[in-house]
Computed example of a mutant assay.
Amino acid sequence: MRGTGAMKALMLCGHGSRDQGAMIEFGGLAEKLRTRLPDWSVEHGYLEFAKPVIRDGLDKLKASGAETVLALPGMLFAAGHAKNDIPSVLNTYAAANGLRIEYGRELGVDLKMIRAAGERIKECLRADGWQDGEPLHDTMLVVVGRGASDPDANSNVAKVMRMLWEGLGFGWGETVYSGVTFPLVEPGLEHASRLGYSRIVVFPYFLFTGVLVRRIYDQTDIVAAAHPEIRFLKAPYLGAHDLVVETFVDRLGEILEGTNNMNCQMCKYREQVLGFEAEVGLAQESHHHHVEGVGSSADCTLCDTVCTGACRTAAAAASGAGHAHGHDHAHDHKTAADHGHGHGHDHSHADSHGHHHHAAHDRAHGHGHGHSHGHGGADHHHHPYPHADHPLGPRSMRKD
């Protein structure tokens, strides 16, 4: 088998969450992959706010004898995390440990993923009395994406929404986002409520539970209370649906076949994307090394199994006392939709952003994101989002 050496080793790379339920679900996905791939050693790890971190999983695979590791981002779409953060972590580890790492692409816009999403939406409709085959012309679909400062990732959510809208025959469809971009959930649903549909299905296009999914449902309840004439239905998120698992298996196969080409045509780091021209060629680097495993459910004593955001309250109090470390890493403002972007050179390694992502260890070359990383004071900032003053976003959802 190409590129795996004597041992077949797969590293599943997640974003991480302070929410224990989200981590249990991600671990369940890894377990499903172990069952689906009995000949492979499968480990998983996270960028931040959860343990094990990605390095821990790589350590286990290396200690077990792996010479080459195939790594997949456990993310829906390609934006900053999969384009910058994960490749940076992999490249750094590979260079320091003499391990070859080949990097695959995100789940992306995929027919299996759309089928899985369609099944989740149908589950919701059936619970409301709908039967397969009944027209949905009186029902509107609202798909909620994670939200990113990368327009390519945001546009992919809109494409998924259109495929679901047209595939299931909804009367109308709209796309909203949980943070970073616009429109956000509450104003988006307020707009949707004016269109005259008697039933609105709200579907979080998320892999797993967590703070953001609960806020999406909470804000749905807020808008529903203001519009009792409309029946709002809350569809379940994707979870480790069997078709999601199969899509990960497909991504693994793409690495082995050498066909894991990613979309460079719309990548803001490679091309002059309207409104994001200043970001062409920015350096690839991880922005999460200082919070790897920090504040995870394994360490946090402020919440039980469900993250309540108590750590943010504590951080705000510390800030008022002059002890803040400078940023709230709840990351409501970040996307779980990232992936490699290159800048006009060889695409043979993960950090080249070239979207073939072989041999992640070749070298980290950077395309500078204008981030300052003086983490003594955690001076951590991102390239400014060009529509930060948009009236329907891009602030993260209200936390109350």
Score class of each variant (00 low, 15 high):
76 L>H: 06
278 A>G: 05
285 E>I: 11
310 A>G: 14
151 P>F: 05
344 G>R: 13
246 E>F: 06
12 L>A: 01
330 A>W: 09
326 G>Y: 09
318 A>D: 15
394 P>E: 02
311 C>R: 12
31 E>N: 10
147 G>S: 08
180 V>D: 03
100 R>P: 00
141 L>Q: 10
275 G>D: 07
103 Y>G: 07
230 I>Y: 06
79 A>S: 11
28 G>S: 14
328 D>K: 02
337 A>G: 15
110 D>F: 07
324 A>N: 13
299 D>I: 11
243 L>G: 01
17 S>W: 09
367 H>C: 03
91 N>G: 12
3 G>E: 13
397 M>G: 08
339 H>S: 10
60 K>L: 12
22 A>S: 15
109 V>D: 10
204 P>C: 05
244 V>F: 11
40 W>A: 10
389 D>R: 07
26 F>C: 05
137 H>Y: 00
239 G>P: 03
313 T>A: 15
295 G>E: 11
212 L>S: 11
153 A>Q: 05
237 Y>D: 02
60 K>H: 07
111 L>W: 00
11 M>Y: 02
121 I>Y: 02
160 V>R: 06
321 A>M: 14
99 L>D: 03
183 P>R: 01
352 S>V: 06
330 A>Q: 12
78 A>E: 10
196 G>Y: 02
351 D>H: 10
125 L>V: 04
45 G>L: 04
20 Q>I: 04
162 R>I: 04
349 H>R: 10
311 C>S: 13
124 C>P: 04
271 E>A: 12
313 T>N: 12
58 L>I: 05
97 N>D: 11
321 A>T: 00
94 A>T: 10
172 W>E: 13
392 L>P: 02
288 H>M: 09
341 H>W: 08
366 G>E: 11
292 E>G: 03
265 Q>W: 09
243 L>F: 11
332 D>M: 07
85 D>Q: 08
50 A>C: 12
337 A>Y: 05
6 A>V: 03
68 T>E: 13
284 Q>L: 11
381 H>G: 11
307 C>V: 06
98 G>F: 06
268 K>D: 01
234 K>C: 12
128 D>V: 04
153 A>I: 01
216 I>F: 07
212 L>A: 14
374 G>T: 13
243 L>Y: 12
236 P>A: 10
353 H>P: 00
395 R>K: 13
99 L>A: 08
65 G>K: 10
119 E>T: 03
59 D>W: 05
97 N>C: 08
376 G>S: 14
181 T>L: 04
89 V>D: 10
190 E>Q: 14
14 G>P: 03
231 R>H: 13
380 H>A: 02
330 A>E: 06
105 R>K: 02
17 S>T: 15
169 G>F: 04
108 G>M: 06
398 R>Q: 10
148 A>W: 08
47 L>D: 03
28 G>M: 14
350 A>T: 07
356 H>K: 15
192 A>K: 00
255 I>P: 09
41 S>P: 03
299 D>M: 12
155 S>K: 11
297 S>C: 14
316 A>E: 14
329 H>V: 01
293 G>H: 05
233 L>C: 13
267 C>W: 06
107 L>D: 04
227 H>I: 00
317 A>L: 15
298 A>M: 09
45 G>T: 05
244 V>P: 08
30 A>S: 14
189 L>V: 01
29 L>T: 15
282 L>F: 07
315 A>Q: 09
1 M>V: 08
122 K>G: 04
220 T>C: 15
189 L>K: 03
